[in-house]
Design a protein around this nucleic acid. Structure first.
Lengths: 163, 163
DNA sequence: TTCAATTAGTGGCATATGCCACCTTATCCG
DNA sequence: CGGATAAGGTGGCATATGCCACTAATTGAA
């Protein structure tokens, strides 16, 4: 029993999620490899792309990512000239982000590679199921989970997943 | 449109999965914080716990994690005295892993905290749905995805998700 | 207007993960 | 037996993510 599965474990929603993320991440990473981008970077570039010169905070919020983590992750992309930042005109605290022309080109290039991976995944699990899974994952991500202790804003109670 | 959702994106199964993982990860991390363990470390300790002095490779395989990554992740746990390794009796290439008594104790402690988080999650999404989601994630994780180029072992074709 | 509270980011530190090059120990085979 | 391979890990390097402490710019109030 190498890959042990005693009762009580793998029941961990978080562990299961991370495991799947590692697995799928490698697949998409491999697919994007020719572009030199990691799947995470691709996702970040895309998020910036679809935003209107989004502020760091807005991006972090959309990706449910720590602001400082976003800052770190952005560095290699800035260093490689795919992304650039500039201060907001009205609020100097805000730093906005946008793709550079090379960044746009790189995203276009990666988009083709991504499509192939995405298509293969959907072929395997079915577009229908994939969509349901994404919906379920989005629902989980948006759950307002809080530890009982800080049980203050209990609105947001009965949101059900639509698996 | 801060959290932009233009068509074509968020359609990325991988990005959606990672986003959910970050979100849920924080919740479990917060829950386990009192123990001083991260949710990833907890999962690793548990995996070791349920194994019979598993070899590094076996653990990595079970968690679908890179072997070297496992080695890195194991370091802080070894440093803190929760885990120890020892060479296999018959094959000196193999390094086996086990929990130390303090490691066992720490796992027991964390298990209680984990239960609370797990329970809360299940209360929110429903045990039934949670189980289905985990099953779907396990199915995704075990998909034998390969890029078309290296399309060799095409067995493992039509595995369907059971969402 | 002035100062406290809030908002947006940064930098440092630590863990999480991967890939690749390299080292050892086993195995296979001619 | 001896060299070619395969198997199992390690170390170095790079990105991914988080938390915390701290700074700068805004806002809100007295």
């Amino acid at each position: 029993m190498t890959v042990a599965r005693k009762p009580g474990f793998s029941d961990c929603n978080n562990a299961t999620l991370r495991r799947a993320a590692r697995s799928l991440g490698r697949f998409y990473d491999d697919a994007l490899a020719p572009s030199g981008l990691k799947s995470t970077q691709f996702g970040l570039l895309f998020q910036i792309h679809i935003g209107d010169e989004p502020a760091m905070g807005a991006i972090a919020e959309a990706l449910i990512m720590d602001l400082s983590a976003l800052g770190h992750t952005l560095k290699p992309l800035i260093r490689d000239g795919y992304v650039e930042t500039f201060p907001d005109k009205d609020d100097r605290r805000i730093k906005r982000v946008r793709l550079t022309p090379p960044g746009q080109a790189k995203l276009d290039e990666a988009l083709k590679l991504w499509s192939a991976a995405q298509r293969q995944f959907e072929d395997k699990v079915g577009a229908e199921q994939a969509a349901k899974l994404r919906a379920a994952l989005d629902a989980v991500a948006d759950l307002d989970l809080k530890l009982p202790a800080a049980a203050s804003s209990n609105r947001e109670s009965g949101r059900r997943l639509i698996l």
